[in-house]
Simulated assay, not measured.
Amino acid sequence: MPRVLTDEQRDFVAAIGEFCKRECGTKEQRDKLTANGQEQHSRELYAKMAELGWLGIGIPEEYGGAGRGMTDLCLFLEETSYWRAPISGFATTIIAAAAYEKFATEQQKRVVLEGVVGGRVEAISMSEPGAGSDVGALSCRADRTDGGYLINGQKTWCSNAHLADHVLLIARSSREDSKHRGLTQFMVPTNADGLQIKGIDTMGGREVNDLYFTDCFLPDSAVVGTPGQAWTQLMTGLNLERMLLAAMMLGLARRAFDDTLDHVKQREQFGRPIGSFQALKHRIADMATELECARLLLDDVAATIDAAPDEVFARETSMAKLKCTELAKHITLEGMQMMGGYGYATEYGMESLHRASIVSTVYGGTSEIQRDIIGKTYGL
């Protein structure tokens, strides 16, 4: 089914494809940009995208951005993900930037939002060793002191902190009758005294980090928004986070499908292409149908958000995130199965697509959490 895009959007997607094909279209190019796959973000490639103005797509025009909506952001992430562009820092940067745009002081906005347009990376830190899905259980402390706060505690699974200029930290500044109260957001320079960033080795390479705070002093001017109200502030960003992650995985799933389709058309056994056998032909048909369903869902939710950007669409965005991430995991695994030994070999890339898809059902709220959210919207 043809995608309904404006001429401007169609040209935008085509330009992204042409750029990525030229700059990172081969495994050899991507290996060079990512230290043989160990790094998920290339500053070199990111700087080139900044020069083209793409990194400011979701940033307001007064800060140098394009001021575009959810649909265009999703198109950008879907297409760059399809081409496997190593720009993992973009999603966390835009998620953090949206919080600054809504709640930060003008000075904070100038520093962060203009930096984003220029190619700077930002990070956001919520998870702790004892608080993952249960964000309200955070215990990293922000104790009031003269002229500011002292931060003590550990955060974990912080994506791209090692690349970022700042970490948008959520810490507990007070104990209230509700665990969701007393949380405050802080703008923390990654070179702040008392902050140690230590990488966590993963099957995806260098991507996430532990953060250790030891009497890290932050002035009052580091507070983002209203002290004690971080939970409410975080809830306003759920549309964006879930949709960006869904778009990334839709692009990855499309790539896995196309690579699988190419293989089953070319690979011959028993005197004919293996895709001509019913066992594989029907699996391809099912994958294609599910991809189309996911795309239609994502496009529809993005358009709905663009029509009412101040509303929170908890059910719809959770559905999009759940569908696209689970589908990416399924299609990449099916691709490995249908490609046989080639799917397992690093030379052909399907195994790396599968590794990238697995964590998508965990970060940004696990699939189980998304299902729980959806169920609650039906009164369950």
Rank of each mutant, 00 (worst) to 15 (best):
P2N: 06
E8P: 02
Q9M: 10
F12R: 01
A14K: 15
G17N: 09
E18H: 08
E18C: 01
C20D: 09
L33Y: 02
A35M: 12
R43Y: 08
E44D: 12
L45G: 02
E51H: 00
L55D: 06
I59L: 08
E62R: 15
G65L: 07
L75P: 03
S81W: 05
A85I: 06
A85H: 04
S88E: 12
G89E: 05
T92Q: 15
I94C: 07
A99V: 03
E101M: 01
K102W: 06
T105L: 03
E106R: 15
L113Y: 02
S125D: 01
S125R: 06
S125T: 01
S127A: 14
S133W: 05
S133H: 05
V135I: 14
S139T: 14
C140E: 02
D143M: 13
T145D: 01
D146V: 12
G148F: 06
D165Q: 15
D165Y: 12
L183W: 01
Q185Y: 15
F186Q: 04
V188W: 01
D193F: 11
D201R: 12
D210L: 07
D215L: 10
D215R: 14
C216V: 04
V223R: 08
G225D: 00
Q229H: 11
L234V: 08
N239Q: 01
E241A: 12
E241V: 12
M243Y: 02
L245R: 15
A247M: 04
G251A: 06
L252S: 08
R255Q: 10
A256S: 12
F257A: 05
D258P: 00
L261F: 10
Q269D: 11
F270W: 13
S276V: 01
L280R: 04
I284R: 04
A285Q: 12
E290L: 03
L291Q: 09
A294Y: 00
A294D: 06
L296C: 13
D300N: 14
T304D: 03
A308W: 06
S318N: 10
S318E: 07
K321R: 13
K323I: 03
K323S: 09
E326C: 12
K329S: 07
T332S: 15
M336K: 08
A345H: 13
E351A: 14
I358C: 10
T361I: 14
V362L: 13
G365Q: 03
G365S: 08
T366I: 00
I374L: 03
T377F: 02
Y378M: 11
